[in-house]
Amino acid sequence: MNTKSDLFSWSRWNLLVSKHWVENRKRYGLSLLSIAGLLLLWFCFLLIMDKISSLNIIYQYMTYVSGLYITGTLYASTLFAELGSKRDGIGFLSLPASQLEKLLCALLFGILLFFLAYTVIFYAVDIPLVRLGNRFIASVPRNWPNTSIRVPPNHIYNAFTGDFGPLVERQLHLFLFGFFTVQSAFLLGSIYFPRYSFIKVVVVLVTVFLILLVIQNNIIHQLLPAGWSNDWTAWYTRETDGDADKVVILPGGGERVVIFLAQWAPPVLLSLVTWFRLKEKQV
């Protein structure tokens, strides 16, 4: 008998990752090729349809984020799908690796590697096509409609800094961090719901979001003193100081902590719940 830890063994985890890759690489390769094909098709469509700025930053941003979320969640909802049937579930659970190792393997492929692979594929399609679009712009200079302002060449959208993207992405990386939370939720959902897990998790997430919206707008707002407004991360009011208005924010420096936790805590908490759920799963 070996002397490896029953909780986590690096060598066993490597074996698990290697096994997962060997058994799924063909499917993964084909899926990534399909994603690349769809992105190429979509960008070509945009190049043909938008005669002015072709692949501008908003198109790139929207494509990156929606593609990441749609394909990522579809993939995450299949990662523990084998636990939905007795036939496949026994094979998965009987493999001599700890539940933590199995979870970390799923997180590696479902969150980290998928994110990296998708991003690489996105840029493999995005960069050449944005350059192609810029050539069109350079070869046939044009103005914005009803103005004399020249349409500039497009920048490449930077998913990590959010440069040139919408404000929420530049300041908070809302959708970038949100992806890890949503992906963790779909991973958990693939254990919780043996059937139709994708649809069920979508319903749960939308419901949770609506409940938070109601709490935010109808409950917390009512509790605040007159003149105070509330944001998702802080409460604020405007005070007049002489001639100038100043904004007072509570909890002040704590807002950074709240934002940090909102960005990092949900995936960790959801993964923890997934681990417990995996341990108590029966097939």
Binding site: N2, K4, E23, K26, E82, R87, S94, S98
Partner: peptide, 25 residues
Amino acid sequence: RQPSFLERVYLLPEDFQLPSIGLQQ
């Protein structure tokens, strides 16, 4: 379901699913 248990108890189920790879692999 500790690994040290799982490697010493083998359940051959009546119904099973094998991956689409070669036997040796």
